[in-house]
């Protein structure tokens, strides 16, 4: 990993900037927890920065700063005026400004994570803002959520279903979730996590390393989705069975 890292530092970046990774999903599904996990897992090997989109406060940014997973200066907060989806989709100016300010101040960077404010199943990132996006669901909404679909569930480059530790409590069947997700996602990857139990979310981190490496080698400029999936050949690219992604076996 160290050697890889050095290579990346010396090679001229084909895109001239870091990969921008959107992390979206409904309120409370674990977006900030996942962002923190990625900082923990990748912070030593990748040059990172984070933009949060809070609804009411700067709570997410404050949480990440307090968690000590990243230099606090590398975490910027954007306020979204009641409309978290507007700030990541229809009017991305404030987020772009935050991303570019971080890149100017700390660049060159490998990865900028943009966490959206919690919204609904239709909220996805504009391609003008995020090169790749992760949609985070949790099991507590019930195992019907992947079946309901919506652009986040169906089109995100990676679907993460978090809080598997709670599945027994809420009676969610992870196998059903896995099957339904696979049905609507046409082969795009799905990973199950319990960040509570595994604070570095290794499987997701591996997927992110894969897309960052592809990005650094100039891949991933083409259209995403529809099985094409050029930007996500990472090791985490193993769709389907929830058992693959971590030690926790679904009940």
């Amino acid at each position: 990993m160290g050697a890889d890292h050095d290579d990346r530092h010396h090679a001229p970046h084909p895109h001239g900037r870091a990969l921008r990774l959107g992390v979206g999903g409904p309120v409370g599904s674990g977006k900030t927890a996942l962002t923190a996990a990625l900082c923990r897992a990748l912070g030593r090997t990748l040059r990172l920065a984070v933009v949060t989109n809070d609804i009411y406060t700067t709570e997410d940014a404050d949480f990440l700063r307090r968690a000590g997973v990243l230099d606090p200066g590398r975490i910027a907060a954007v306020q979204t005026g009641c409309c978290p989806h507007t700030a990541i989709r229809d009017d991305i100016a404030a987020n772009l400004d935050a991303v570019e300010t971080l890149e100017e101040r700390f660049g060159p960077l490998d990865l900028v994570i943009v966490e959206s404010g919690g919204d609904n199943l239709t909220a996805t990132f504009s391609r003008g803002l995020a090169d790749r996006q992760i949609f985070v669901l949790d099991v507590s909404g019930g195992d019907k959520v992947p079946r309901k679909g919506g652009p986040g569930v169906t089109t995100a480059d990676l679907l993460v279903i978090n809080k598997t530790d709670l599945a027994p409590m809420v009676g969610a069947d992870l196998t059903v979730m896995s099957r339904d997700a696979a049905a609507v996602r046409e082969g795009r990857p799905v990973l199950f996590t319990s960040i509570r139990q595994e604070p570095e979310a290794h499987a997701v981190a591996e997927w992110v390393i894969g897309v960052v490496e592809a990005w650094a080698h100039g891949h991933g400029t083409g259209p995403r989705g529809h099985g094409h999936d050029s930007g996500s050949p990472g090791p985490g690219h193993r769709a389907g069975s929830p058992g693959h992604s971590h030690d926790h076996t679904p009940v």
Binding site: Q79, G81, D91, I92, A93, D97
Partner: peptide, 11 residues
């Protein structure tokens, strides 16, 4: 107001 220039974040 749909001009994507960040105005929606200000009151």
């Amino acid at each position: 107001s749909r001009l994507p220039a960040g105005g929606h974040g200000h009151s």
